[in-house]
């Protein structure tokens, strides 16, 4: 499987590698406690000891940014993996077998689509406030819909296509047809979807934090950090800028990586 990245996609990948590198290195080398307070040292400007300064409780921004990025990246990775596996599996089955199963799945999917994704996530988050597993479940549930739709549409076309018809007639089984015909056809759009999906997951998490229904303080989470730091934007703009910039770069990197498909 050859994957050639276009220049834009390379920039996106570089941005993401940089952010992930920061998150991992902070964990390995600094290992600061994101919750440790030092009220005497609130809003310390960047220095050698605290390269990113401190927040309103004197907590290390370096440690907090590292933790928040790790949380966002891991959660988005987990959500994308779960929703993609679910969406691909059900999409292939529905597009291939058609019939009743396809209709039932499509009906369920239309129900989900009738609600805006974020509202659904808010609903789940409201059921168990501050629960990370619940957020993971809610975001995955919203994201799988797109994989299902794309995979189902591709599978319908490929299953009816002459190359696959020829393979079936020659006696090849379903697994072979999936590997030789379906998977190559859906790989590129799936990678794009995964990148968009990850960006969506990061934004959803941050949005929930921002409206205070997501994770609870003192968790270091980008949206939560934004809302906590917002009252101090004129006193310490560089502190507020950090989570904002992090979300911006994460989403930009993922959008660039998703690339354009003709």
């Amino acid at each position: 499987m050859r994957l050639r990245l276009k220049p834009g996609q390379r920039i996106g990948a570089a941005v993401l590698v940089g952010l992930a590198g920061f998150a991992v290195l902070e964990w390995l080398l600094n290992a600061g406690d994101p919750a440790a307070q030092d009220l005497a040292n609130a809003f310390a400007p960047p220095s050698l000891g605290e390269p990113l300064g401190t927040d309103q409780f004197g907590r290390s921004m370096l440690a907090r940014m590292g933790a928040a990025l790790r949380l966002s990246l891991l959660l988005s990775l987990l959500c994308v993996t779960t929703s993609a596996s679910l969406g691909i599996a059900l999409g292939v089955v529905a597009g291939w077998r058609r019939g009743l199963l396809d209709r039932v799945l499509s009906f369920f999917l239309n129900l989900l689509l009738a609600l805006p994704g974020l509202v659904l996530i808010l609903l789940f988050a409201g059921l168990a406030p501050g629960s990370l597993p619940m957020l993971y479940l809610a975001i995955s549930l919203v994201l799988w819909v797109e994989y299902f739709r794309v995979v189902r549409a591709i599978a319908r076309g490929v299953v009816a296509s002459p190359p696959m018809q020829a393979s079936r007639m020659l006696g090849f089984g379903r697994l072979y047809c999936f590997r030789r015909h379906l998977w190559p056809a859906m790989l590129a759009p799936l990678l794009s979807l995964a990148a968009f999906g990850a960006a969506g997951a990061i934004l959803a998490l941050a949005a929930l934090g921002f409206v205070s229904v997501g994770l609870k303080p003192p968790t270091a989470e980008l949206g939560l950090m934004m809302v906590e730091l917002f009252p101090y934007y004129s006193d310490a703009p560089w502190v507020l800028a950090q989570p904002v910039l992090a979300v911006f770069l994460l989403v930009l990197g993922l959008q660039l990586l998703a690339g354009k498909h003709p």
Partner: peptide, 14 residues
């Protein structure tokens, strides 16, 4: 029982 296609590339995985 097999088939030959009108468009030759149609018979092979790309």
């Amino acid at each position: 029982y097999l088939k030959l296609y009108q468009d030759p590339p149609a018979a092979f995985a790309a």
